[in-house]
Write a protein that binds this DNA or RNA. Structure first.
Length: 276
DNA sequence: ACTAAAGCCTGGCTGC
DNA sequence: TGCAGCCAGGCTTTAG
């Protein structure tokens, strides 16, 4: 569900709302949320630890705890955090719960059961299999125009499919990938290896712009007191986007109808005239 | 090594 | 109103 800007917003919100607090008690309610550990071990490793800070790497949320462990969280499609009072009756789809020293309870709720958690030694986080292969952060020097061009040159896949591959470009999901390609004027079906250097440079710039603009938009949203990140996940109306979810609506530039196609089993939206 | 397709889940929407 | 079928913002695993 959430892509890099939404995860960034959740991380910033969590830092404001729960960093510095102690996890008095951690409870894993759905075993498959954290498949590499047992509920007993999950509870034992986390209970009593304090949250030093919360970070992001790609779309992963990393709670850095004292005592040398970190809690890695991936929201996938529908995962989210809620900050409740401790006497709130159990919310449907609650898969983990953390009683905090503030007297409140942080829960992880996930309707579609795709979300994942893992407890990892903090000094091993960077080497964790799900982190180690991630592409450079889009706002880091590692994600350079040259990096993107070289990466595109290596793939025969469509450029849209390539840029949502987190090991090639990290942080984009289905929405922002379509949006970045529209702004860059690149047809999503174009083979990645056939994107010219000039267009790769343009795409590089557009990826950064699209992500930064989304993050900035979220800064104006009044934080929801309970659902962390609410108003950011769901601000999915076709008015917010240039092409995503706008099938058959006119392109903002040329008025041609936006098209929807399937790529890798997922919808891609684009303007057939502006994107070549 | 790269790529396509299936799989993981629930719920909302559309069309019959 | 009921029901089948399709769709959903992500990622991993499997098979080719």
């Amino acid at each position: 569900m959430p892509e890099l800007p939404e995860v960034e917003y959740v991380v910033r919100s969590l830092n404001k709302m729960v960093s510095g607090q102690q996890l008095i008690k951690a409870k894993l309610l759905r075993e498959r949320l954290a498949p590499v550990t047992t509920p007993a071990r999950f509870s034992k490793l986390l209970s009593g630890s304090a949250i030093i800070t919360i970070r992001r790497r790609g779309k992963f949320i990393l709670f850095e705890l004292d005592r040398g462990y970190s809690l890695m969280v991936h929201l996938r499609m529908s995962g989210r955090f809620l900050l409740l009072s401790r006497d709130t009756p159990e919310v449907k789809f609650t898969h983990a719960a953390f009683d905090l020293s503030s007297g409140r309870r942080l829960i992880f709720q996930d309707q579609r059961h795709f979300g994942l958690m893992k407890v990892v030694r903090t000094d091993h986080v960077a080497q964790d299999p799900s982190i180690v292969d991630l592409a450079p952060e889009p706002f880091s020097d590692g994600f350079s125009p040259d990096y993107l061009y070289r990466t595109l040159r290596l793939s025969r896949r469509g450029v849209k499919e390539l840029i949502i591959d987190q090991s090639r470009v990290c942080g984009l999901g289905n929405i922002y990938a379509s949006e970045a390609l529209f702004r860059a004027g690149i047809n999503p079906m174009r083979q990645a290896r056939n994107v010219s250097l000039a267009r790769a440079k343009r795409l590089h710039q557009c990826v950064i712009e699209i992500l930064k603009e989304a993050i900035e938009r979220f800064e104006d949203i009044e934080p929801h007191p309970i659902v962390i990140g609410e108003g950011v996940y769901g601000n999915g109306t076709s008015e917010n986007w240039s092409v995503y979810d706008r099938e058959n609506l006119p392109c903002s530039i040329c008025r041609q109808a936006i098209r929807r196609i399937r790529q890798g089993g997922r919808s891609t939206y684009y303007c057939p005239k502006c994107q070549r």
